Amino acid sequence: MLSEQLIVEAALRVLQYHGAAGLSVRRLGVALGADPTALYRYFRGIEDVVLAITDELLRRVVEGWEPTGHWREDMRELGLRLHRVYVEHPQAGVLAASRVTGGAHEIQIIETVLGSLRSAGFPEREAVEVYHAFIDQMLGFAALDAAFEALPAEHQKRDDDRWRDTYAQLPAESHPNIAATSGLLDESMRRSACQSALDLLLDGVAARLDARRP
């Protein structure tokens, strides 16, 4: 017996092994051991499957998450959850990061963040601006880091080693700033800047809130 959930789980497996280019109705049918035409009873086509995959990732983001009522802690936890889920499913994460589903879990995220920002003291327009900056930053990092995780291991290693093999070798005479920081660059650029960038964003939001107070 097929179901939307079974099809979405099969699609996640297909993406893991074949990437976005390999996601097709025929391949989903093979993964499910079903006639591919049976999928059309649940989805109109691959586009609808992609939106369902996106909604499934967002479901996993909010699963077990209980907002505390403190805007900064809630936004930080939600942002890191989103990043973690998308990077755990890199092929799906790259595919889903730019999509808008209108589904229940997406609605829950938007409603919760806007509510936190309005309760903190932001008027409607600023709350929307902050939400937009927050969610685009988190989805941007999710897509960037998911794309890196989707690379073959040898490509990941080559890119990481470039900071040591190329940048650490640049002479101070021609590139004084890179030479002075090459060790730090090598250390920092091998990991995601998602968390530090999120904290910088939230610092800016907090400063804007402080400026609003008498």
Rank of each mutant, 00 (worst) to 15 (best):
Met1Gln: 09
Ser3Pro: 05
Gln5Thr: 14
Leu6Gly: 03
Glu9Arg: 15
Ala10Trp: 03
Gly19Val: 01
Ala21Phe: 09
Leu23Arg: 03
Leu23Gly: 01
Ser24Gly: 02
Leu28Asn: 00
Leu28Tyr: 01
Gly29Asn: 02
Gly29Phe: 05
Ala31Asn: 07
Leu32Glu: 01
Gly33Ser: 01
Gly33Leu: 10
Ala34His: 04
Pro36Ile: 08
Thr37Cys: 03
Tyr40Val: 11
Tyr42Gly: 03
Arg44Phe: 01
Asp48Met: 09
Val50Ala: 13
Thr54Arg: 12
Asp55Phe: 00
Asp55Tyr: 00
Glu56Lys: 14
Leu58Trp: 09
Leu58Arg: 14
Glu63His: 15
Pro67Cys: 07
Thr68Phe: 07
Gly69Ser: 06
His70Ala: 15
His70Phe: 10
Glu73Met: 06
Met75Cys: 15
Met75Ile: 12
Leu82Lys: 05
Arg84Tyr: 04
Arg84Gln: 11
Val85Met: 04
Tyr86Asp: 05
Gln91Asp: 03
Ala104Val: 15
Ile107Tyr: 05
Ile107Trp: 06
Ile109Trp: 05
Thr112Pro: 03
Thr112Asn: 03
Val113Asp: 00
Leu114Phe: 07
Gly115Gln: 08
Gly115Ser: 08
Phe122Leu: 15
Pro123Leu: 04
Arg125Glu: 15
Ile135Asp: 07
Leu139Asp: 01
Ala147Ser: 14
Pro152Gly: 06
Ala153Ser: 12
Glu154Arg: 11
Gln156Ala: 10
Gln156Gly: 10
Asp165Asn: 13
Tyr167Met: 15
Ala168Met: 13
Leu170Gly: 04
Leu170Ser: 03
Ser174Trp: 15
His175Met: 13
Pro176Lys: 06
Ala179Phe: 05
Leu185His: 06
Asp186Glu: 13
Glu187Ser: 11
Ala193Asn: 12
Cys194Asp: 09
Cys194Thr: 15
Ser196Met: 11
Ser196Trp: 12
Ala197Gln: 14
Leu198Ala: 10
Leu201Ser: 02
Asp203Gln: 08
Asp203Trp: 01
Gly204Tyr: 00
Gly204Val: 12
Ala207Met: 10
Ala207Ser: 09
Arg208Gly: 13
Arg213Met: 04
Arg213Lys: 14
